[in-house]
Amino acid sequence: MEMVQIAGIGLLAAILVLVLKEQKPIFAFLLAMFAGIFIFLMMIGRIEAVIGTMQGLAERSGIPSVYLKTILKMIGIAYIAEFAAQIIRDAGAEGVAAKVEFAGKVLILVLAVPIINVIVETVVGLLPAGG
């Protein structure tokens, strides 16, 4: 049922945007943005359920919490960056949207640094033992 609601909101917003675009482009943009935010907020609750499942899985299998934290952070960064970039793209600023995405990618990569550190250290530690 929820899907029907969301589809309806999306369609409605699209039609209104079409109407408004001729008269007031700025309001068309605002409408699109709010529709997007609304749908996003509606779905956040559902995402929460998925994340809860992931957490349960991680706890039961005994994976260190650091991994889960990293993964959740990564998902959050990806979603926020993507969402902002799409809104900005709606406004027509493709360049800015690309920058936002770029920032998201960099931040995700930053998350990988400690893991890479550990792996590299391990490999370096292995070498003398092997040699």
Binding site: I47, V50, T53, M54, L57, A58, R60, S61, I63, Y67, L68, T70, I71, M74, I75, A78, Y79, A81, E82, F83, E101, G104, K105, I108, L109, L111, A112, I115
Partner: peptide, 26 residues
């Protein structure tokens, strides 16, 4: 197994392909 499952779920959760490449690295 748990971690691989987790990775699969994360792959599905991610918003688009551009981010997916980076997320897959992690």
């Amino acid at each position: 197994v748990a971690v691989v499952l987790l990775a699969a779920v994360v792959d599905l959760l991610l918003p688009n392909e551009r981010m997916q490449r980076y997320a897959r690295l992690i």
